[in-house]
């Protein structure tokens, strides 16, 4: 059942997810700079930043517990797993059946819980603030994400990501109304979960409304590098889930070597578009007040539920 091509796809995808993540973030930043009439730092800037951070000596608080030091590694492990099992290149991934969409949401939740715990570990006010807000965004975003995924699961009658992608890739090019709702909801969740505008702003420090940056304020050196890298992989993984659910065309199916170049080109094209879209979205919208975030996310939740109900109505 597991063949060489499958294993090769798995390895290529896992390595790609880890290596391409920072590039994708660089591309989003570059696009945003262009849209804002700046020249931008260049595509490779995230890699330079990671290298610099790895070289630096980390400074941690005197009373930091082992959990604080372990969290960046756990985070990185979770995100690598997530990036490895989302079918971005091919559907024939031997590891993909290890976790379906619910388990995938579980991985993200695991990472979030660890990061929030680490934020509380130092016991400064910013850490607690960030952890509390992160969990608030998390508990609203997680059900919305699950409902979005359930809509796709109902269409393909499966929660296995590969089956969902295969089913959706083979449908005729018709717009499912339920999927349209789900796509909007998913986009909103993606913005919230990856600390993007309008819920959070990845570009600022020391703003009283920050969430993600408040949690990682005490991190430095290699720890910070791992967290930043994990965030980049997370953004990539979320985008890959979005692509897999709503635009799966071009993905390599089965163990077919010749499909790999096509899949690579298709994935690159889709990522370029998605990154540009994300940058455009972030440029035209302003950050919400923190207390608007629950409204934003409950809207996402309701849209996802609506999409699911429409699916049932459409069938009945």
């Amino acid at each position: 059942m597991i063949d060489a091509a499958g294993i090769a796809f798995q390895i290529v995808q896992s390595v790609l997810a880890v290596l391409i993540g920072p590039l994708y973030v660089g591309w989003v930043n570059q696009c945003r700079a262009w849209l804002q009439n700046r020249s931008g730092p260049g595509l490779l800037q995230p890699y330079y930043m990671l290298a610099r951070l790895f070289h630096k000596e980390p400074v941690i608080a005197e009373h930091a517990s082992p959990l604080f030091r372990a969290t960046p590694y756990v985070l990185f492990g979770c995100m690598w797993l997530a990036g490895g099992i989302v079918p971005a290149l091919a559907t024939d991934l031997p590891f993909a059946p290890a976790a379906d969409i619910i388990a995938l949401v579980g991985v993200f939740a695991l990472a979030r819980v660890f990061l929030s715990l680490a934020a509380l570990d130092i016991g400064t006010s910013f850490g607690g603030l960030g952890a509390r807000r992160e969990m608030m965004v998390g508990f609203l975003a997680e059900p919305a994400m699950l409902m979005t995924l359930f809509t796709a699961a109902f269409i393909s009658n499966s929660t296995a990501l590969t089956t969902i992608v295969e089913t959706l890739a083979h449908r005729e090019f018709a717009i499912y109304p339920s999927l349209a709702f789900a796509a909007v909801a998913f986009l909103m969740v993606l913005l919230a979960e990856n600390a993007r505008v309008p819920v959070d702003n990845p570009a600022t420090h020391l703003e009283l409304t920050m969430i993600h940056e408040a949690m990682i304020l005490e991190y430095s050196g290699r720890h910070l590098a791992l967290i930043e890298w994990a965030s980049a992989i997370k953004l990539f993984a979320y985008t890959a889930i979005g692509i897999a659910l709503f635009a799966p065309w071009g993905i390599a199916e089965g163990s077919n070597w010749s499909a790999l170049p096509v899949a690579l080109v298709a994935l690159a094209a889709k990522l370029v578009l998605a990154g540009a879209g994300l940058a455009a979205l972030e440029t035209v919208s302003a950050k919400f007040r923190l207390f608007r975030a629950p409204e934003f996310l409950s809207t996402a939740f309701l849209l996802a539920v609506l999409g699911m109900l429409i699916h049932f109505l459409g069938r009945g």
Binding site: Y73, V74, F76, G77, C78, W80, L81, G84, F95, P97, A98, A99, D100, I102, A103, N157, S158, T159, A160, T163, L226
Partner: peptide
Amino acid sequence: SAAQASYNPLIFLATIVTVVLLTF
């Protein structure tokens, strides 16, 4: 059925632990 849903916590745990150790 396997096409509908499957979950393998051992691979799950092994992957995370391996990545954590390797990264470390």
